[in-house]
Design a protein around this nucleic acid. Structure first.
Length: 778
RNA sequence: GUCGGAGUGGCGGAAUUGGCAUACGCGCUAGACUAAGGAUCUAGUGCCCGAAAGGGCGUGGGGGUUCAAGUCCCCCCUCCGACACCA
């Protein structure tokens, strides 16, 4: 006997009305949805049920209610909490922890949707998935707000964290919230300072004078981010100057080669790897010194010499002048008496102009350099060449001085032309070459013992010559410089050091950690850190001699906090160490890291450096050389072509959509709009289509399509549905693995369309086939 | 300037390995249901010619390889991003 069957009878698919949430409203809705009887029921368009104003489709799917119920359930059941000793295979998914700026914006939604999808997918595949969340809670906005309002940054920050936390929950992303880490918590600060002291002890942290951005209006040092593109202070508008101040650095340059080499094995976007390679900027070449002399080649009695770095020692025979950076320490010593006025004026103007001005000045090359009156002797030719200063030579790169070969370097060519300096070709340009400087490969000419050689052969021969004559060596030079970590700011982690007149710099003893900023401070726009003006903090006792001393008032760059938080997530309750090696071994490295491409260099480079350094110091496991095995960088969100951002005032708030179409439709729309790595324009996001799709699924799954089913043997049509269900599983699995979520969603939609056709054709669908198909879809 | 990425319908996009170009969604057109439809369901929708049958053209432009090219090779154009005087 064939029994007509109402799909909504199926207990597995009936919404659970007895969950812990248990609000009366929900029970009412569930009762409606699950009510069924033995007779096929048509669409219940007549019994329009209570719904939120914007939900307009005639079915029982009310996202805000359904979502709130299950979100509560996930939380109360601790469904996504994991223990370090979980026997399942481990998987660590991490989204870059956010700066708490308030309620979540679309960029957060997009980021956490991808992360959440992986967490659930891996969990369903039998993994123990570590999915932690925290907040990068130090930073300038809170301090600037404090200066404006007088409110302590902690209050401001805690409030924003709660706003962000609740909107992350509302999105429906799941985390092990027990492991939450915030940069500004006392425990986290303690271990950040502990790590700093480890670095200090091992020589990875050091202090030296360095030129920094100084705003004369605000009377303070600025972070690089605070300097506008035009070289002015983004708060006061004053032109930012360079000042030499005592600053703290981390010796990231010790790791330059490793940071470069280890990129190869990482499953990261090529774009990011390329950016890091460029940033590290390794170049091979030679360094050699040239004695300072006069126009006739007579060396000075003091034996002064200028050392230059070049990647093209093979072109040395074409050197027709040399250049030092205006800041070069030898400037005063080599300058001729009758050139002093001019040189001093040039140095002063170069020093005064901002980096931006200095780099943007084009055209008048003659004004951008000055002759010192001194010469250096070219060791290859033995001839003296004039020594210039020019602002296109940077004190921070290489040796701060170059040999200039106009024939094989366009910039040198331009400068030579502007100053009437000779140009000697040392490589025969190819026939028909009509450019100026020729930088390609070719046969050497006018080059003594290098004549006839090609570029690579000549480079090796030139280096061999320099080394055999004891004039120089082949060297490797990096663009990467040490990381300046000190900030003259209040809302950051204090550097745990005490300055004693007698003992000098003394680390704060471990037992005294953490060094916390005081609460009773006034936030005045003095431009000086409130820490400096707070006697209780500033005035202290030397841990070494017991005499009066001063605390360091600089705080650490917030990138220091974000350089190790992913390690703390593995062991957030540890009170004896920042983390245990066992805990870290059980999760690290992060299997999938997800974040914005804007962190391609700074954060990702610093975190890699920290991992290597902590590993070498024995704090992290010895074999942990890289923190993030796979990296995914999501695209930016635009609106009408512009970047969507607070400053542009074109934000689309997720809240409105969460309250109407719901979090699932919003998340689905983010997945469906296009490839995750691509930038998206919110105008092109079809939230309607995704919402419609979810309603269709709901009606299908709950039998609200009025569908009848029947028990019978499978026909070819039923088998086709089953085949398609299996194909869907294969396709979606494959799509998930290769981050093709947009096509996975399309496959779901296509299958749903198939099922609607199946349900609405003349013959009544087979019960088992339809149930299984719907289970597969869900 | 250097490096990286991308150009496919009215729009977002699909085509994973060289194999039916435009999946899926938006929008649009028509129909069904309806008192009504901005809900839902069904059908259609690359462009041009044609009443239709059918034909021609079509993945930024130009050439090439191939039985077969959005996909591979060469040249060019445009857009986006990062770094930008790095010796």
């Amino acid at each position: 006997m064939e029994a007509l069957y109402q799909l909504s009878y199926s207990p597995e698919r009936t919404p659970d009305c007895t969950g812990s949430h248990g609000g009366s409203k929900i029970e009412t809705e569930c009762a409606e949805s699950s009510r069924g009887n033995a007779v096929p029921v048509p669409h219940r368009r007549s019994e329009t049920i209570r719904r939120l104003p914007s939900a307009s489709m005639a079915d029982g799917y009310q996202p805000p209610i359904v979502e709130a119920k299950w979100q509560d359930r996930w939380a109360s059941d601790g469904l996504y909490n994991v223990e370090n000793n979980d026997p399942r295979p481990h998987w660590y998914t991490l989204c870059m922890y956010p700066y708490p700026s308030g309620a979540a914006h679309m960029g957060h939604v997009r980021n956490y949707t991808f992360g959440d999808l992986i967490v659930r997918y891996r969990t369903m595949n039998g993994y123990a998935v570590l999915s932690p969340m925290g907040f990068d809670s130090f930073g300038l906005p809170a301090e600037n707000a404090a200066i404006k309002t007088g409110r302590h940054p902690r209050e401001f920050t805690d409030e924003r964290i709660e706003m962000l936390r609740s909107s992350i929950l509302r999105i429906g992303a799941v985390y092990d919230w027990r492991r939450e880490v915030t940069s500004h918590s006392a425990e986290y600060q303690k271990w950040t300072q502990w790590i700093f002291l480890k670095f200090l002890e091992s020589g990875l942290a050091y202090r030296r004078n360095a030129p920094v951005n100084w705003c004369p209006g605000c009377q303070t040092v600025l972070a690089n981010e605070q300097v506008s593109a035009d070289g002015t202070c983004d708060r006061s508008g004053d032109i930012v100057e360079k000042r030499d101040l005592e600053q703290w650095f981390f010796k990231i340059t010790d790791y330059a080669q490793q940071l470069l080499d280890d990129l190869d094995a990482l499953d990261w976007p090529d774009r990011v790897k390329t950016m890091q390679r460029n940033w590290i900027g390794r170049s091979e070449g030679a360094e050699f010194s040239m004695p300072v002399c006069d126009a006739d080649g007579r060396e000075r009695t003091d034996g002064l010499a200028v050392t230059v770095f070049t990647t093209r020692p093979d072109t040395s025979f074409g050197m027709t002048y040399a250049v030092m950076a205006p800041e070069h320490p030898l400037v005063d010593l080599v300058t001729d008496e009758d050139r002093r006025v001019e040189v001093a004026a040039f140095v002063a103007s170069a020093r005064k102009s901002s980096d931006v001005e200095r780099m943007s000045s084009e055209g008048s090359l003659d004004k951008r350099g000055v002759f010192t009156g001194a010469y250096v002797r070219n060791p290859f030719t033995g001839t003296p060449v004039p020594l210039y200063l020019a602002d296109y030579v940077l004190i921070g790169y290489g040796t701060g001085a170059i040999m200039a070969v106009p024939a094989e370097d366009q910039r040198d060519w331009d400068f030579a032309v502007a100053h009437g300096l000779p140009i000697v070709r040392t490589i025969e340009p190819p026939e028909g070459f009509d450019g100026e400087a020729f930088t390609g490969d070719g046969v050497h000419i006018n080059s003594g013992f290098l004549n006839g050689m090609g570029k690579h052969e000549a480079i090796a021969a030139a280096i061999a010559f320099l080394e055999s004559e004891g004039l120089g060596t082949g060297t490797v030079n990096f663009r990467l410089r040490d990381w300046l970590v000190s900030r003259q700011r209040f809302w950051g982690c204090p550097i745990p050091v005490i300055n004693c007149d007698d003992c000098g710099m003394v680390p704060v003893p471990e037992a005294d950690l953490p060094v916390l900023a005081p609460d009773d401070v006034e936030f005045l726009p003095t431009g000086e850190s409130p820490l400096r003006l707070h006697d209780g903090f500033f005035e202290t006792v030397c841990p070494s001699c017991g005499g009066p001393a001063h605390r360091e008032t600089d705080t650490m760059d917030t990138f220091v906090d974000s350089s190790w938080y992913y390690l703390r997530f593995c062991d957030p309750w540890n009170t004896d160490q920042p983390f245990s090696t066992e805990a870290v071994e059980s999760w690290m490295p992060v299997d999938q890291y997800i974040g914005g491409v804007e962190h391609a260099i700074l954060h990702l480079m610093y975190a890699r450096f920290f991992t290597k350094a902590l590993s070498d110091l024995g704090v992290a496991p010895a074999n942990l050389r890289e923190p993030f095995t796979r990296l995914f960088t999501q695209g930016m969100i635009r609106l009408g072509g512009d970047k969507m951002s607070k400053s542009k005032g074109n934000l689309v708030a997720p809240e409105e959509i969460l309250d109407t179409d719901g979090a699932d439709a919003l998340r689905l729309a983010h997945l469906f709009v296009g490839p995750p790595q691509d930038d998206i324009d919110w105008e092109g996001v079809g939230i309607e289509g995704c919402s419609r799709f979810l309603h269709r699924v709901w009606r299908l799954a709950l039998g609200e399509t009025g569908t009848a089913v029947v028990d019978r043997d499978a026909t070819e049509i039923d088998l086709e549905v089953e085949r398609r269900a299996n194909r869907l599983i294969a396709k979606v699995t494959d799509d998930y693995e290769r981050w093709a979520y947009n096509t996975a969603v399309a496959a779901f939609m296509e299958f749903t369309n198939d099922l609607y056709r199946y349900v609405q054709r003349d013959e009544t669908p087979r019960r088992q086939t339809l149930e299984q198909a719907i289970d597969t879809l869900l």
